[in-house]
Computed example of a mutant assay.
Amino acid sequence: MTRLNLGYGTNGLTDLRLPDALALLADLGYDGVGLTLDHMHLDPLGPELAARTKETAVLLGRHGLSVAVETGGRYVLDPRRKHGPSLVDPEPEGRAARTDLLVTAVRIAADLGATAVHCFSGNTPPGTDPATAWRRLADSLTPVLAAAEAAGVPLAVEPEPGHLLATLDDFHHLRALLGDPEPLGLTLDIGHCQCLEERTPAACVRDAGPWLRHVQIEDMRRGVHDHLPFGEGEIDFPPVLEALAATGYQGLTVVELPRHSHAGPELARSSMEFLRPWSGKAEAC
């Protein structure tokens, strides 16, 4: 049974400078980091991106951390519209801006030696029929998948509550629309499984195994999309983590607590304590 490679998301450490966040995670025993590209941590739209990416690669190497690139920054493209514009935006210019951001993320990921690039679809705009929204999503992702294939970095799409692509079944619908391209994989958020999937989180993990390229983890309650620290929700974690280890998944399993940055260092510590029995580093100790 594969031991898990544990990471923590920088979107839960936004009150720390990136070098301080990476040092903290290394000291706590994490294997890697889910690096959200945003204005506070490796801004993908800022100046001298190549130089800053190189500096980040050096820091990751110094601390022995692997990395997955995440693209869920709330206002990285539009300072007034959360997660806007999206891949299914009504305006072609908006969709193109999101596509360009993801292509940039793929290039950053290649330079960092990342395990995957994460993304999600976005909400279906009001008045948009499903067929149109799915066509926009497929068309918007096509250049990103081409970049991912060229870079040798998988693109891991996340089912997100409330979005066009919200469930595992939706992920498979996208795969079919795109012709099941090799670079297309799945980000599975364990909390989201508890929130809205009909199957248990452990069953979702088993079903998703062949397509897993990135995993996010936190506690959650049924029907409530609120990322919670471990023990504050309803998930029975041992069966979930055992199922995940049994898949042979070797990417990062990243703690995702984006609304808890005010307590980020303490939650990074307590999350590692909770997850340590399944950690690859724990096995080596």
Rank of each mutant, 00 (worst) to 15 (best):
G223E: 13
P239D: 07
V255Q: 00
D226F: 14
F237M: 09
P229L: 05
P258M: 04
G248T: 00
T253A: 08
L241Y: 04
V255C: 00
D219L: 09
E232S: 13
V255N: 00
L257S: 07
D226W: 11
G231Y: 08
Q216R: 01
E242L: 10
L244S: 01
P258Q: 06
P229A: 09
E218P: 00
E234P: 01
T253N: 03
H260N: 03
E232K: 15
E218G: 00
P239E: 05
V255L: 01
P238Q: 08
D236V: 07
P258E: 11
R222P: 03
L241H: 04
L241G: 04
L252E: 04
M220C: 14
G231W: 09
L244T: 02
G223T: 13
F230A: 12
G251L: 13
L252N: 06
A245K: 11
R259Y: 14
G251V: 12
E232N: 08
V240Q: 13
A243D: 12
H225V: 08
E234T: 01
V240N: 03
G231N: 08
L228Q: 14
E232P: 04
P239C: 09
L252G: 03
H227F: 02
R222V: 15
G251M: 11
P238H: 07
Q216M: 00
L241D: 03
L241E: 07
D236F: 04
V254C: 10
L257F: 11
Q250F: 00
G233K: 10
V254H: 06
G233C: 12
E242F: 03
G223A: 13
L228C: 09
Q216A: 01
A243F: 12
